[in-house]
Simulated scan of single mutants.
Amino acid sequence: MKKILLIAACATFSGCSLDQQLERWTLEGYEKKCDAYGFHKGTEAYSTCMLKQQELDDSDLQHSLDRSAHSEHKK
């Protein structure tokens, strides 16, 4: 709930959109993971790590959508 309020405050007071804030948080999450893995910003390995994080998120989203569509089809 606090996150939602923070997003709303950001959108209201700083002019950033909800999509921009969520994108920023997503990228920060990827950066934290790649930093924790020991990759250094600006290197090819870091870029590859960032892309891999996005691929994993995209894959998770697709699996969720597939499961949802499958569940709806059963009804």
Rank of each mutant, 00 (worst) to 15 (best):
M1P: 03
M1G: 08
K3E: 09
K3T: 09
I4Y: 04
L5K: 12
L5M: 11
L5V: 07
L6T: 10
I7T: 11
I7F: 06
A8G: 03
A8W: 03
A9K: 08
C10A: 12
A11M: 10
F13G: 01
S14K: 06
S14N: 03
G15A: 03
G15K: 03
C16N: 03
C16M: 07
S17C: 04
S17H: 02
S17Y: 01
L18A: 07
D19A: 03
D19I: 00
D19W: 00
Q20E: 14
Q20Y: 00
Q20S: 07
Q20N: 06
Q21M: 08
E23G: 05
E23M: 04
R24F: 13
R24G: 04
W25C: 00
W25N: 02
W25D: 01
T26R: 00
T26K: 00
L27C: 14
E28I: 01
G29W: 00
Y30P: 11
E31A: 10
K32G: 15
K32A: 15
K33M: 12
C34S: 05
A36K: 15
A36T: 15
A36Q: 15
A36V: 01
A36D: 14
G38A: 02
F39I: 01
F39A: 02
H40P: 01
H40V: 09
H40M: 07
H40N: 05
H40F: 08
K41E: 07
K41A: 06
G42A: 02
G42Y: 08
E44F: 01
A45M: 07
S47Q: 11
S47A: 10
S47V: 12
T48H: 14
T48I: 12
C49N: 00
C49H: 00
M50W: 00
M50C: 05
L51M: 12
K52N: 11
Q54D: 15
E55F: 13
L56I: 15
D57C: 09
S59D: 14
D60Q: 11
D60V: 11
D60E: 13
L61N: 12
H63M: 09
H63S: 14
S64I: 07
D66R: 11
R67C: 06
S68T: 02
A69Q: 05
A69Y: 05
H70E: 07
H70C: 03
S71C: 03
S71K: 08
S71I: 02
E72G: 03
E72T: 02
K75R: 09
